[in-house]
């Protein structure tokens, strides 16, 4: 039996007086493709942001690649993680954002090579060669020299995916990566992600409102409500035969809103 690559154990997250994650526990196996779905405000983004260390936690433990994410062992004492520990842990994880967050002052190629050169000390030439391979994979070979402002939303998002991949993380987080795109640009990004899911053994966590895509992409679907997992299982089970009332209501609403499942 292989060990989980992510272990979330009784995780709490509070914003002021609002409890966003409430004793949340789940494991993710290496290579697993996970879809996180649920109503707005249920805490999906917060989970990804916590895994990317963009938020702090209020309680509980998270283990990533066999090490505590927010805690470090010093002798027999457990201390909150310091910046050096977080830096070490982040090397396992990459994230793609809803609004791409490309660096506007850098060319497409420089966006992709910046982190490998700076954080891994890769030679520029090697980083560029790899960046060009990644650009080819996302179908943007001809855009290496372009500035982000010259790209469409779908192109920007594909560059952002390539940028995150350049660091070769073992875990990739995708937070509603198509929801800021015009409808006609969604497909090109989903295609890239489908290929990625099929061709790599990376562990992927996907937050999405595209139920059809979640169905196709995921090995397992987690349905969240109010910071807790209401129901989880293989996509066929969650989308075809949800057992929980809240899951059924949620999916009905999504279908009524015109999304295919």
């Amino acid at each position: 039996m292989t060990a989980p690559i992510i272990r979330i154990d009784r995780l709490d997250k509070v914003f002021g007086t609002l409890k966003v994650l409430d004793g949340l526990s789940f494991d993710v196996m290496p290579g697993e493709k996970l879809a996180l779905i649920g109503p707005s405000g249920s805490g999906k983004t917060t989970i990804l942001r916590i895994l990317m260390t963009l938020e702090t936690i209020s309680g509980g433990h998270i283990e990533v690649c066999g090490e505590q994410l927010y805690h470090m062992r010093r002798g027999d004492r457990e201390l909150p993680a310091d910046e050096a520990h977080l830096h070490h842990m982040r090397s396992h994880i990459g994230m793609v954002f809803q609004h791409f967050n490309l660096f506007p002052h850098k060319s497409v190629l420089d966006n992709i090579t910046l982190a490998p050169v700076l954080t891994k000390g890769e030679p520029k030439a090697k980083a560029e060669a790899r960046a060009r391979e990644l650009l080819e994979m996302v179908g943007l070979s001809d855009k290496a020299g372009a500035m982000p402002s010259q790209l469409s939303g779908g192109q920007k998002q594909r560059v952002a995916i390539a940028r995150a991949l350049a660091l070769q993380p073992r875990i990739m987080l995708f937070d509603e990566v198509t929801s800021a795109l015009d409808p006609e640009l969604v497909e090109e990004v989903l295609l890239v992600m489908k290929r990625l899911a099929a061709e790599t053994d990376m562990t992927m966590l996907l937050v999405t409102h595209e139920m059809g895509f979640a169905h196709e992409f995921a090995d397992r679907v987690l349905f969240f409500d109010k910071g807790r997992i209401v129901e989880q299982g293989p996509p066929d089970q969650i989308f075809r035969n949800p057992t929980q009332e809240r899951t059924q209501t949620f999916l009905r609403k999504i279908i009524a809103a015109g999304h295919r499942v």
Binding site: H87, R90, F97, L114
Partner: peptide, 8 residues
Amino acid sequence: EATIALNL
């Protein structure tokens, strides 16, 4: 946040 995700 992008710079954190890229581990700079």
